[in-house]
């Protein structure tokens, strides 16, 4: 095991019922990098993410997170791993019965013994970080889609995780907010040394933040490496995705 790899996946195969969604995916994610997962819609990106964070179990393969084989451990042990990662879901997934600040405070309240006042200060700081001071006492139903995402981000980083997973962080955000989110992501990586695993379709954002990319096509890993390497590869679908080669036939 290479200590610089925070995530190692070997021959991961996943199915929903009988349909193969991921076919023998292998990859390593290095400490401190921003790793972007790309691919066409329905290609299996969300499914891959859910396997890495243990929400789904693969048919076969190995998944190692922070040096531990997550498929061979007890729930309690796995929860210790989970405390070191943060996840931002495609739809935010805030708890609707709680105010924004309670949502953000939840991991701290559950997993630390910090006094209430300290917790509140941490929550306030994280909410400022995502530009949502005014939303402190609101309920999730009173937020816009983009605000929900930012609250979910604040919640995901409230425990200062070592790895952060994002499923389409900028989908549905305006370009300005999306760019700010990218800044925030780069900031987190630089200041805290967080490893980020991001699923996204936004070309701008990929070009700005990605250290390495993984391209999934119908559950196959067709490329894993830097953007320069992808360009050099000359794969037709990847070229089309990035707009490096115009599609000749118009629709």
């Amino acid at each position: 095991m290479n200590t610089r790899n925070v995530i190692e996946i070997k021959d991961l195969t996943a199915k929903y019922d009988d349909r193969v969604i991921l076919n023998k995916i292998s990859l390593d994610i290095k400490k401190g990098e921003i790793f972007v997962i790309l691919g066409s819609s329905g290609g299996g990106k969300t499914t891959l993410l859910k396997h890495i964070i243990g929400l789904l179990r693969p048919v076969s393969g190995e998944i190692t997170v922070l040096g531990k084989d997550i498929l061979k451990m007890e729930l309690e042990e796995f929860e210790d791993v989970l405390k070191k990662i943060g996840v931002l879901f495609q739809g935010g997934a805030l708890l609707n019965s709680m105010e924004v600040w309670e949502n953000v405070a939840m991991p701290l309240e559950q997993h630390t013994k910090l006094p209430e006042s300290t917790i509140r200060n941490i929550v306030k700081q994280k909410l400022s970080l995502v530009n949502l001071r005014h939303a402190y006492r609101l309920f999730p139903s009173e937020l816009s889609g983009g605000m929900k995402k930012r609250v979910a981000l604040a919640r995901a980083i409230v425990m200062d995780p070592e790895i952060l997973f994002f499923d389409e962080p900028s989908a549905g955000l305006d370009p300005i907010t999306a760019a700010e989110l990218d800044d925030l992501i780069l900031d987190l990586q630089k200041k805290l040394g967080i490893t980020l695993v991001v699923v996204t379709h936004e070309l701008e954002s990929i070009k700005r933040i990605a250290d390495r990319i993984l391209y999934l096509q119908k559950g196959q890993n067709i490329f894993c490496g830097t953007i320069e390497q992808a360009k050099a590869l000359g794969n037709e679908e990847i070229d089309r995705f990035f707009g490096w080669k115009e599609k000749t036939k118009n629709i």
Binding site: K50, I53, G54, L55, L75, E79, D80, L82, K83, I85, V87, F89, Q90, G91, A93, L94, L95, N96, M106, P107, Q110, H111, A152, R155
Partner: peptide
């Protein structure tokens, strides 16, 4: 409702067991 809005998944990845919580 918590299931379809992925709140249960969110709890799980925050290391909170929905059965406990």
């Amino acid at each position: 409702t918590m299931k379809i809005t992925e709140e249960l998944d969110a709890l799980k990845v925050m290391a909170l067991n929905p059965l406990k919580y």
